[in-house]
Amino acid sequence: MLRYGLPLVVIVAVLGLLFVGLGIDTRTLPSPLVGRDAPAFEMEELRDPGRTLTEADLKGGVSLFNVFASWCYSCRAEHPYLLEMAKQGVTIYGLNYKDTRRDAERYLRSGGGDPYEWIGFDPEGRVGIEWGVYGTPETFVVDRHGVSRFKHVGPLHPRLIEEKILPLVAELEAES
């Protein structure tokens, strides 16, 4: 029976694997940063060049850490959702990734508002590398101890915000 049984098992296993594979999103990567302390960084504030931001500025409350750039087309798509969340009282920090001050400020002015508490200015993408950024937009949910708890790559969309991000923020806020 081994002669026919074994190949059959292999065939069925491979077919099953391929079928499961069809449902997998092969493009988004899990971030090894999730569940760990946010990486150390030091950078200027975008709108306030005198101010230096470090990882300590992430601590103290639950926040979103959103990576954006003026050249990023899909960032514009999610911008209104960020504004809406900010209006609801969610703390949002920004990382302006590989951009110029002038373009970034024009982007914020034209986008209908500025949802960010502070914005780190990362013209060379070095802080981005520390955060494992591989595309924009990217959004992390960071808890009060500065540990990143969730990461989304690509533009935010209503379902994700309602079903995942807002509940997670509420849950983290309830944690002591």
Binding site: A69, C72, C75, G135, T136
Partner: peptide, 10 residues
């Protein structure tokens, strides 16, 4: 491609 991150632009 709307889901793809805009990584290559800069």
């Amino acid at each position: 491609s709307v889901t793809g991150p805009d990584g290559a632009a800069q």
